[in-house]
Design a protein around this nucleic acid. Structure first.
Lengths: 305, 305
DNA sequence: CTGAAAGCGCTTACAG
DNA sequence: CTGAAAGCGCTTACAG
């Protein structure tokens, strides 16, 4: 490769003195124990003292060094995010937003976000283990839940805190954050049925992910709400890229007695179906109705809460 | 939004005892000072002792706690990456690869990658300042250099180490890593000229970035090599997305006496030009020659080293 | 309510 | 070549 590198030796770490808790204690005429307790809002410190300490701390720009605290408390004030880039990278564009969101709230509280990448599931677990072994983080945010997720098994065993994005199948003792994909799917089917559709297809996402299982459930519930019997030939999975959506769209439309409407678990798949329809000279909204997850969500918000 | 959240109180931090330097010192019958120096490869420790210490450390799975080291040394073994997401997000897809690359080598050395996001240039600097104030990182990797980059001014003033991806205009005292974009551009022009093209257009990247300045220089050098006088009407800038490339391609092709070949500083722009050509019924490679940066690099590697 | 002291897990002059 | 000691910047029982 046509690289060019220049390395300048590091400057001497003349990083100027920061104010320490000793400085603060001296200036205030209080023991550093008291200063520490005031700053950490211990209940046994007088409100007046707390106030004085806080003001002086702000004035002198003091903030405890998190690694000095860690040596006593064990808390490093960092949360870990390990990105498994080994598997399908279709979700990648989303990651930047994910990181951004986490970073913002983490920064607000003067915490820190440590990110590591892994290639493949094995490496992912190893990376997590390394991070906890070395006490680099206090806990994890786990992206992309799988129905049976080895990361939660590991973390529960090690007793390290985590919150997972997406639900796992077994929910006992897991903190999660998720969107209600199943509701959106159900709603979409309801709307299509209301419009008179009877052959409603479904393109699901990646097989091993739990959201797929949930969304398929939602789809099936929607059918059952509408009194339509599910037809296995109208259900496809693996639609987590545009081109996969296109292929699966073609497949569905080639079925004898094809669907007149298609619900997609993922938006990208819906974009692919648009293309498939175009390839076949079908007009979306006229010859074929299509909806993707994001659109579903917007249809009728109150029902999803 | 249709969210669902469940929060389980954190498990008690029963995180089992790790082996400390005290354990190691006891087992080995050496002072912990000696153990520490052996592990850190001090020259005044006997080779035999070093070996014994290392073996035992490996056996007991000992590794120094980086935050405990930090309290003496000031080094936290973390490098910072702050992502400015405020500006054009056209470079976003690249970021995941960037993070991946950094993360890998950082992990190898048992360091850590701390990432923070910022929105806008002001916030970017503030975020950097916060990270150094709180000693969260030992240094920075700076993505996307600008010709005159405020981050390097700041970091130089604060004497904190950094390496920047891309060169700045003023290179005194800055460590950088870069590709030789200017060479690639020059080469591309040379090849086009060799094929007989005389009207060779150029679509540059974002204005404020230094790579754009360098690549334009390369383009102009290429023209001069070939004895072609530059024509300002054949030079466009701001082509850092596909659609921008498409627009600029149209603009260039509408010029009186339009280019027969177009060099693009960025690949995405070249993709846009393909579209523009298609829109106008021009065949790439026949009616119009187009090349983007990545393709340039592959043309004739040895010239770029 | 506050102070004095011990200690977290390391590193590093200083002796010998 | 190695040990004993001090200390980094914090927190937290324990007294009073």
């Amino acid at each position: 490769m046509a690289f060019q590198v220049r390395h300048i030796p590091n400057p001497k770490p003349i990083r100027e003195k920061r104010t320490t808790i000793n400085d603060l204690s001296r200036v205030l005429g209080l023991s550093k124990g008291t200063v520490s307790r005031a700053l950490n809002d211990y209940p046994d410190i007088s409100p007046l003292t707390k106030q004085k300490v806080r003001e002086k701390a702000a004035e002198m720009g003091y903030r405890a060094l998190s690694y000095a605290q860690a040596v006593k408390t064990g808390q490093v004030s960092a949360i870990g995010l390990v990105l498994n880039l080994g598997s399908d990278n279709a979700h990648r564009p989303f990651l930047t937003n994910f990181i951004d969101g986490i970073s913002r709230v983490v920064s607000e509280r003067n915490w820190t976000l440590t990110v590591a990448t892994a290639q493949g599931d094995k490496n992912e677990l190893d990376t997590i283990i390394r991070l906890v072994d070395e006490h680099k983080v206090d806990g994890f945010i786990l992206p992309r839940s799988k129905a049976d997720d080895p990361r939660v098994a590991l973390l529960k065993a090690e007793k390290v805190p985590f919150v997972i994005f997406g639900r796992t199948q077994e929910l006992a003792g897991v903190s999660y954050f998720d969107v209600r994909g199943e509701q959106a799917m159900r709603e979409a089917v309801r709307l299509f049925a209301q419009e008179g559709h009877e052959r409603i297809g479904f393109i699901n996402g990646g097989e091993s992910y739990n959201y797929s299982r949930l969304r398929e459930e939602g789809y099936l519930l929607g059918l059952s709400d509408a009194g339509i019997a599910p037809d296995p030939k109208l259900i496809a999975s693996g639609g987590f890229t545009k081109s996969a959506g296109q292929q699966l769209g073609h497949a569905l439309l080639e079925v004898r007695n094809p669907p007149t409407a298609i619900v997609c678990a993922l938006d990208v798949a819906a974009l692919g179906v648009y293309r498939a329809a175009e390839d076949r000279g079908l007009k979306i909204g006229k010859d074929l109705a299509v909806i993707g997850y994001d659109a579903c969500r917007k249809v009728d918000l109150p029902h999803h809460l």
